[in-house]
C-alpha cells in the first residue's frame, strides 16, 4: 500500500522537477533574443537544433515550450483530481440516489461531446491564454477518475472490514478516515496515464490559434511553422517532433511501471 503510493509520489516529483529543468535549460539558452543575421542556420554546436526565421535558438525554444506544456498540464491534472475526488466521493456515498444521478448525467454529457468543441466554445468567449485553457481542461476531464473513485468507494462499502467496524461500534468518521487512502490510487494513476494526451493538447489548441501567446514559444506553433518552412529548413519541425516523441515514450514507460506495482 505505502509502496505504491511512494512510487506515485516519486513519479510526480520527477515530473515537476523535469518541467522546471526544461524551463531553466530553455532560459539559459535564451529563447527570446532575435538575431536577424543568423536566420535559418543549420544545426551546429552553437545552436544544437538550428535557428528559425527570426534567428532565435530553436533548442532553447523547444525546451522552454515543453517546460510550459508540462508545468501547466500538471496543474490541470491537479485541478481535475480535486474535482474528481469531490464528485466521485459524493456519488459513491449516495450511490443510486439523487446526487449520484445528477453527477452521472453531467458525466455522460462531458464524455459524449468531444472535448475540443466545449473547449473552443469557451475559449472564443474568454481571453486567449494558456493558463485559462488548462483551467478549463481541468474542469472538463474529471469524469473518468471520478467514476474510478466512485467504484472504489462502492467496493469498500460492501467489504467485510467495514462490516467489522460497524459491528465493533467504531464511529463512522474513523472508518472513513481509515479507508481514505484506499480510494485514490486508481484515479491518480488514470490521470497520469492522461498526461501525454494533455501535453499534446497544447498542439491542437495552438493550431486553433489559442494557447501560448507570443513571444513565448509553444510546441504547436513551432511544429506548424516548421511544416510551413519545411522545404527551406528541415530542422525546424523535425527536432521538436523528435523530442516530443521521446518524451511521450519515456512517460509511457514510467506509467507502465506504475500500473504493475499493484
Amino acid at each position: 500500500m505505502l509502496r505504491k503510493y511512494f512510487n506515485l509520489f516519486i513519479f510526480i516529483i520527477i515530473l515537476i522537477s523535469t518541467s522546471y529543468l526544461f524551463l531553466n535549460i530553455g532560459k539559459i539558452f535564451d529563447p527570446f533574443s532575435i538575431n536577424l543575421n543568423a536566420r535559418y542556420q543549420k544545426p551546429s554546436l552553437n545552436h544544437p537544433f538550428g535557428t528559425d526565421y527570426l534567428g532565435r535558438d530553436l533548442f532553447a525554444r523547444t525546451m522552454y515550450a515543453i517546460g510550459i506544456s508540462l508545468k501547466i498540464s500538471i496543474i490541470a491534472l491537479f485541478i481535475s483530481f480535486i474535482l474528481s475526488f469531490i464528485f466521485g466521493s459524493i456519488s459513491g456515498f449516495f450511490h443510486n440516489k439523487f446526487p449520484d444521478k445528477i453527477i452521472s448525467w453531467i458525466y455522460d454529457i462531458l464524455i459524449t461531446v468531444p472535448l475540443i468543441l466545449i473547449l473552443s466554445a469557451a475559449l472564443s468567449v474568454l481571453k486567449p491564454s494558456i493558463e485559462i485553457t488548462y483551467l478549463i481542461v481541468g474542469l472538463l476531464i474529471w469524469p473518468i477518475p471520478a467514476r474510478l473513485i466512485k467504484g472504489e468507494i462502492i467496493q469498500i462499502k460492501n467489504s467485510t472490514f467495514i462490516l467489522a467496524d460497524k459491528a465493533l461500534g467504531i464511529p463512522k468518521y474513523l472508518t472513513i478516515l481509515k479507508s481514505f487512502p484506499l480510494i485514490f490510487y486508481p484515479a491518480l494513476s488514470n490521470l497520469l496515464f492522461n498526461l501525454p494526451e494533455l501535453i499534446t493538447l497544447e498542439i491542437g489548441i495552438s493550431f486553433l490559434g489559442f494557447g501560448v501567446q507570443p513571444p513565448n514559444p509553444s510546441l504547436g506553433k513551432l511544429i506548424f511553422q516548421g511544416i510551413l518552412d519545411a522545404n527551406i529548413a528541415w530542422w525546424e519541425a523535425l527536432f521538436p517532433v523528435l523530442v516530443l516523441i521521446i518524451l511521450m515514450i519515456l512517460i509511457f514507460i514510467f506509467t507502465q511501471k506504475l500500473k504493475f506495482k499493484y
Partner: peptide, 21 residues
C-alpha cells in the same frame, strides 16, 4: 498506442513535408 492520438499524424505530416516536398 504509445503516442497520443494526433502526435503520430503530426509526425507523419512533418516527415512528408521534409522528405517529399
Amino acid at each position: 498506442i504509445i503516442l497520443p492520438t494526433f502526435v503520430s499524424s503530426i509526425s507523419i505530416i512533418t516527415l512528408i513535408a521534409i522528405f517529399f516536398p
